[in-house]
């Protein structure tokens, strides 16, 4: 697979003595939207943390753009374009929209072409433009998620990894955010999405991984996964 942008091979990780991931492998292809689904506590967030390096992987390898980045600290990964929109948004709540976006572009790659990218982000999320000087902590859940994605985009990502796009949001916001995601995908952005709403996730993604208890359960194009009885029952509620 020559167009693999991110490859995770045999990843194991955990917290303290507790092992959560038991040898997980997955690949995100360039220009595609890849989804990772799984029940609560399956280890999706832990996978992303270990990939980004906010927790140290126990073993396994993370290849990004053909290079081994397993042991690089998270801030270095960000400067290479491996960007995470974390679970629960994790905005700089005491800082304004403008400041959050400026921090998104802290790395050199983000500083380059800053104003053009800012315009594009505001075109995608006009709501943010109206509130540039407002503090992020005062926002509704949907606006916070918009800002979190916008902040990630300001880094000029090679791949944008999003943990729980729809988490805790009203249906209208979920609809808007998935619309924005579709726009980004159509513009050629590589995305790795973790999502509870499997219906929506499958509708936008090119390829999906299903994990259970820290192991890969199955993988494939969403259409074929959606045809599997155990997936229909466990994740699609059918």
């Amino acid at each position: 697979m020559s167009d693999a942008l991110l490859e995770v091979e045999g990843l194991t990780a955990g917290y303290g003595e507790v092992q959560v991931l038991w040898g997980l492998s997955l690949t995100a292809l360039r220009g595609r939207l890849t989804t990772l689904v799984g029940a609560n506590g399956a280890g999706k967030t832990t996978t992303l943390r270990a990939v980004l390096g906010t927790i140290a992987p126990w073993s396994g390898r993370i290849m990004f753009q053909g290079e081994d980045v397993t042991r690089l600290p998270a801030h270095v990964k960000a400067t290479r374009g491996l960007v995470l929109v974390p679970e629960g948004r994790q905005l700089f709540s005491n800082m304004t929209v403008d400041e959050n976006l400026e921090m998104g572009a802290f790395a050199k790659r983000g500083a380059h072409g800053y104003s053009d990218r800012l315009e594009r982000v505001f075109t995608l999320f006009p709501r943010l433009k109206e509130r540039r000087r407002q503090k992020a902590g005062t926002f509704s859940g949907g606006e916070q998620q918009m800002l979190a994605i916008a902040r990630g985009l300001m880094t000029d990502p090679e791949i944008l990894i999003i943990d729980e796009l729809s988490w805790g949001l009203a249906p209208l916001s979920v609809y808007q955010l998935f619309g924005a995601l579709k726009t980004l995908k159509d513009a050629g952005l590589t995305v790795l999405l973790v999502e509870q709403n499997v219906h929506l996730a499958f509708a936008v993604s090119d390829y999906a991984y299903v994990i259970a208890e820290g192991r890969l359960f199955t993988q494939g194009p969403p259409s074929s996964l959606a045809a599997m009885p155990e997936i229909r029952r466990a994740y699609l509620g059918l």
């Binding site: 960000a78 400041e99 921090m103 802290f106 880094t155």
Partner: peptide, 18 residues
């Protein structure tokens, strides 16, 4: 601003490349 960002949310600061 990066100092304030780290004060506000250290993990998020690391994730944006600080």
């Amino acid at each position: 601003k990066a100092v304030r960002a780290v004060a506000n949310n250290r993990e998020a600061a690391e994730l944006v490349g600080i």
